[in-house]
Amino acid sequence: MEPFGYIAAADEKMAIDEAPRGTFIAGGTNMVDYMRLGVIKPTTLIDVSRLPLTNIEAAGDGVKIGALVRNSDLAYHPLIQQKYPVLAEALLSGASPQIRNMATTGGNILQRTRCPYFRDMHYAQCNKRQPGSGCAAIGGFNRSHAVLGGSPACIATNPSDMNVAMAALDATVHVHGPSGERDIAFVDFHTLPGDHPEVETVLQPGELITYVTLPAVTGKQHYLKVRDRASFAFALASAAVVLDVQGGTIHGARVALGGVGTKPWRAKEAEAALVGQAPSPAVFAKAADAALAGAKGQPTNAFKIELAKRTLVRALTEVSK
């Protein structure tokens, strides 16, 4: 690890004021990992972990979640268990209990990709680490990589489970920065790699995520994660679904996919294929086809296209039982 300075932020203002000097750290599960690999080299860490951003409270019909709420606290909170089971399921399918006890809501949103070429500093080629250097994953071993949203510059997957549920739930991310506070729709928060995979979000320098809000949603919810091990593994494919079926017709549908996209993947096309239809295997299959219509596989990850479809169909089947 590069040497760095350390500042414990006493309050939000101090954190924002110090921001130009350094990088925020909260739970540390992602930061410390990537710092130890040498991928990120902050000169100063601004510890925001003691800021009072740890509440989960009802806000209107929805809920407001402090950025420093730990993943485990969020998953087991009664409001989340009752109103947003898809989020609870997503959180509890991620990492391990110890990591969930450390990782924060804000940090999880900013989780970096698991691309092995990004993680191994011995590869000179990684557009995300070194813009313009190339992509070793394309043409390399890319079984874990994205089939949706990739570009010739990068096919790295967003690895978060929580983000998939957040995308489906139409979360809003509230940030506080040097030029004040602002709200960002979750689906707009992460950017596609395009020509600039080094840019991953619309967060501006010095901006701190302070809380996340979720609107009220109607319908049955489910998060399904498919992975190589039975637990403690990143998703090969996952689906967060909310299906509102009334009188035998789908009135509302929310669909997001994980493990297959370069960002948390909201599948509006699938939603369009569902709404107004009666739930059936054929309709679900059509929705899955729509969700993956733009997918592009690599030699070692093309199976994910079919897998993601089946994962989505299974998730939809579960919530329509």
Binding site: D120, H122, A136, G140, F141, R143, R229, A230, A233
Partner: peptide
Amino acid sequence: TVRDPKTGRVITRDLADYHVPVHAD
């Protein structure tokens, strides 16, 4: 254990990428 097809560097370099069974398996 997977090797990169071009360089031969091990891709599955850690215990998140080289899967050994966990309790749930």
